[in-house]
Design a protein around this nucleic acid. Structure first.
Lengths: 298, 298
DNA sequence: GTTTTTCCATTCATAAATGAATAGCACGGC
DNA sequence: GCCGTGCTATTCATTTATGAATGGAAAAAC
């Protein structure tokens, strides 16, 4: 016998939102820490229950039908209410234990954060840390992360932010490269050198052009968007490259290259959701992060 | 390992709302068509996950803590969004089959509705009917019923309503009673008769006083709030009683008593949620109800 | 004061859900 | 054109959730 709509299991809507937003059962399964057959069954059960076809089945995923689109609005309202609830719940917790999720750049995840997190783990063994390396702007609103370390001022509402200071950048190269190609004495020498650049990411090009240096994509003999791999390329002698001075100076076999133009600094911000400011494990980790990051900035 | 908050199963919130609003695991289980141990586990899992105590355990049920109260707001937002979603889904259906839930008074559920529903079932075998006898004002907003038959003008927003007409009332008694006690000729004779009245429900008293008849609770030798039982009491000869004239006239062994004061009429309204007006099975049942109820009213 | 009723917590057999494994398909990259 | 990738659908062994049964407690009814 067909059940009433009020008997609909809310977790089916949870699955519906995930599939609608990711575009596939597999991606939704990864997002919800479930499996692809499970998500597939949830969508089928939901469609049978509502008597509606919510998705067009494509070879490479699911696409919302118009009817499915119509239902996504209230479904997202449920997701927003759920996020609100979990935020309020987290804000009320008083245990100095549990998980804390920290988002930061991929590069920082490779360099500064491992030692910092090792330190946090020693000081607070009951707190477990999830590290989210990402060069995209995390949406803290849905609590994909509890605390974020940012290189730009966060502008979301309801967030607490603190500017810790600035990281200076420098231009560096492997000694092996410099021995082979010579040491540039200024901007005029740069066209005679190999420079490691980004691929699709045009941050460097825009920054150089902003300084009056007519850089183009062709200037870069080696290009890579992954910042950690980028640094390994520089270290391997592929050319000149940019790096945070504190990281570079710790790297063996690397020399700082004199530049006669000013390089920008990177601001470093800590940010977290305002509702969590008094959650013991969040405020404790914030404290420890601040303590650890302060010496790295000016 | 403790899971992230975003991994919280939304159906736990569904259970949370039900327990919060009903005040007990058992009542919530009945409401959600689940079992008491299941609801108990859901609340425990939710509390463990959030790290919060949401309810005080009482001997006769669960009472929200302050923290639980705080979370009820977003939890109810989820419920509201779910109701909106299921309404939109229902509004989009195009099948002339499925369940339709009809709410009406207990009395009507006993008398007029069985024949009407038998007729609907014959005409539309693919439509299944749930009948909700209730003398309380159902909240159609959360779709406890799809269509309601009302004796007062529904005033909720977003509803479609139609006034079908009015049911007339009369005063009746069993022939056996009248043979024994005589036939009253007017209001002046009433104090010499037994009248079947209500118990806690003071509708009759208020109505009589409104007509200038100084009725009190003591006037009624037999009192019962259950309207079907009430009518059986009248039929059994317990005294004079009020009834819808169409129902009374079909009852063997019952005589209408002449009264020299006007009795009120009962308006009959059909009402349903506006969003469902084009849902085939809803509009079909509405049609059939209207067709069947029209002859009963003037 | 006693009995009845309603509730929650616990146990465990059963039912239902899950996910590993797999096949097949279509698209994208080379 | 071929190969690799990512996807969905299906099957079935395993895991997990459910609910029947039960005991105990407290409140309500008599």
């Amino acid at each position: 016998m067909e059940k009433r709509l009020t008997d609909l299991d809310w977790s089916l809507i949870q699955s519906f939102v995930a599939v609608a937003e990711t575009g596939s059962l597999s991606a939704a399964a990864r997002q919800l820490n479930a499996s692809q057959p499970t998500l597939g069954r949830h969508i089928r059960v939901l469609e049978d229950h509502l008597g509606l076809e919510l998705f067009h089945r494509q070879a490479r995923g699911f696409e919302l039908t118009h009817k499915g689109q119509e239902l996504l609005t209230p479904a997202r309202d449920m997701a927003a209410a759920m996020a609100d609830l979990s935020l309020r719940a987290a804000g009320q917790e008083n245990r100095l234990e549990g998980d804390v999720r920290i988002a930061c750049s991929v590069f920082m995840a490779h360099h500064a954060m491992p030692d910092i997190i090792a330190d946090i783990r020693q000081k607070e063994p009951a707190i477990k840390i999830d590290l989210l390396p990402s060069d995209q702007s995390e949406n803290l609103l849905f609590r994909e992360a509890d605390i974020a370390v940012r290189m730009y001022r966060p502008e979301q509402l309801d967030m607490i932010t603190r500017h810790l200071g600035n990281i200076s950048l420098g231009m560096f190269a492997a000694q092996s490269y410099l021995d082979r190609k010579g040491r540039p004495r200024g901007a005029v020498d740069l066209p005679h050198h190999d420079i490691v650049g980004y691929d699709a990411n045009d941050d460097i090009i825009r920054e150089m052009r902003g300084m009056g240096i007519p850089a183009t994509r062709d200037w870069f003999a080696v290009r890579c968007d992954n910042q950690s791999a980028y640094w390994e390329l520089v270290r391997a002698g592929c050319g000149l490259g940019f790096c945070q001075t504190d990281v570079a100076r710790k790297t063996a076999g690397i020399e700082e290259v004199t530049v006669d133009f000013p390089l920008p600094v990177l601001p470093v911000w800590l940010t977290a959701h305002e509702a969590l400011r008094h959650t013991p494990r969040i405020s404790r980790v914030w404290e420890l992060l601040e303590e650890a990051l302060k010496p790295l900035v000016s």
